Simulated scan of single mutants.
Amino acid sequence: MHITLSFNRALRTAFLAIGLALTGSVLWAHGDVTPQAVDTKTLPQLGAKWLPSNPYSSGPAFKEALRIGTSAYNQNCARCHGLEAISGGIAPDLRKMDADCTGMADEAKKNACMAEMDEFYLAIVRRGRTRDGRVYMPPFESTLSQEAMWAIRTYLETRREK
């Protein structure tokens, strides 16, 4: 028992020393997960009523939404969901979020499936995820506007696995 405790203590000490050497600070699993505000004033404003689907998926605002969404994802989502939406195993791989829908041959069923995924996405991002009293994802509704959430969704749509 004493050997196991000493070994575990040695591993923790080594981990902290490596974290300090590499970053000048201690590395923790998720880092700072405080939601960061996103400036969306260059996007068309959507109003107070939440839209059921992504208004920036196509059209004139797409490029700006993609620019803002990429930055917003990196500020708020990448630490758990991975850089470029490629999960390192901490949280779901968001490139696969729509996987059940994208392969559907029937266009009407595919569109209905994508609408469900938009609804699912908004519900999770707005209210977060908690299981057994543990927060798996913080709620972003008080920090991110509807425009910011849809801009992030626009970015994620470009990251879908083929």
Rank of each mutant, 00 (worst) to 15 (best):
F7L: 05
R9G: 09
T13N: 15
L16E: 14
A17V: 09
A17M: 07
I18R: 15
L20F: 14
A21Q: 12
G24V: 00
V26G: 08
A29K: 15
G31R: 00
T34W: 10
Q36M: 08
P44K: 01
L46M: 02
L46C: 05
L51T: 02
Y56P: 02
S58K: 01
S58T: 10
P60R: 06
P60Y: 08
A61Y: 01
I68H: 01
T70M: 06
Y73G: 08
N74K: 10
N74C: 09
C77W: 00
C77P: 05
A78D: 02
C80F: 04
G82L: 08
L83T: 04
A91F: 08
P92F: 11
L94R: 06
R95Q: 01
R95P: 04
A99S: 11
D100I: 15
C101H: 05
M104V: 00
M104W: 03
A105F: 13
A105E: 12
D106V: 04
N111F: 15
N111L: 15
A112V: 08
E116W: 00
M117A: 10
E119A: 11
F120E: 04
A123N: 08
I124Y: 01
I124R: 07
D132T: 09
R134S: 15
M137I: 10
P138D: 06
E141T: 04
T143H: 01
Q146M: 00
